[in-house]
């Protein structure tokens, strides 16, 4: 079996969640690598959408920013941010791929401040960016968390930047967000999580090879539900790793 690191595995798992012939709103960072890998593997007809206007880019080269020229290279559309956000608001974007500094049991994300006080904050993070719209409007949101530990999988976020299921079942709709939307999957360096249909709580679906269920629970501050039959994620294939290393991120910016 080929050797691989955690980030490479994370990218492969996220990539496998990207379905061919669907639209996906791609946030900055790992989602870009996952989308690029997906297009070169199982989903050549995946249509990546980027918030500053690029739709359907080839992703031959890895974008370094959500507005750089690679986000609309050989694309079908080079529009602007309003059109992209409005397109997702009207229900045209299936998946949204995001990252975050903290996540809670309902899939809400924090990328704004660390600490109890908003201003002046203990640690100022970047802010929402386009994440708030992506998670408000895409049908299924997928969060990618590079580090699964108790400081990041928390009971209570320091700041709720981006909506998951807010406070539980029905709360998105009660807040005025569009119905039938919300978090779908969470990928971390330990496992793959989904959300319980009734309670909307984060639920462990699969662990990575060599990771035990207990390990995931021990590294989560909130009470994580566990699926009846937790499976094991398949390790990256030789082909996935080759494409990831040679074509997706040859400059080793992330892996």
């Amino acid at each position: 079996m080929a050797e691989y690191n955690e980030t490479e595995f994370l990218i492969c798992i996220a990539s496998r969640l990207m379905a061919d012939k669907t639209t996906a709103f791609i946030g900055t960072g790992i989602p870009m690598l996952a989308a690029s890998l997906a297009k070169k593997m199982h989903a050549p007809n995946l249509v990546p959408a980027f918030e500053f206007g690029g739709v359907g880019a080839s992703l031959q080269k890895l974008p370094l920013g959500v507005g750089d020229s690679r986000t609309f290279h050989k694309a079908v559309l080079a529009a602007g941010i309003c059109d992209m956000m409005e397109t997702s608001a009207r229900g045209f974007i299936e998946y949204g791929f995001l990252g975050g500094a903290q996540i809670d049991m309902f899939g809400n994300l924090n990328t704004t401040v660390i600490g109890a006080k908003y201003w002046p904050p203990k640690v100022r993070l970047p802010g929402s960016g386009g994440a708030n719209e992506v998670a408000s409007f895409c049908w299924k949101t997928i969060a990618i968390m590079r580090q699964h530990d108790k400081r990041r999988f928390v009971k209570k976020l320091d700041f709720l930047t981006t909506p998951g299921y807010l406070t539980g079942p029905g709360s998105r709709e009660a807040a005025g967000l569009p119905p039938n939307t919300g978090p779908y999957r969470v990928v971390s360096n330990l496992g793959l999580m989904g959300f319980d249909e009734k309670t909307k709580q984060m639920t462990l679906l699969a662990t990575h090879p060599g990771i035990k269920v207990e390990q995931v629970l021990e590294n989560t501050e909130f009470e994580m539900l566990v699926a009846d039959n937790v499976t094991e994620n398949k390790p990256p294939t030789t082909e996935e790793l080759r494409i990831l290393r040679e074509q997706v991120d040859p400059d080793k910016l992330y892996i």
Binding site: T112, N132, E133, F137, L177
Partner: peptide, 9 residues
């Protein structure tokens, strides 16, 4: 608009 809702943002 229909974003920002329900959040600290």
């Amino acid at each position: 608009v229909s974003s920002m809702l329900g959040t600290d943002t």
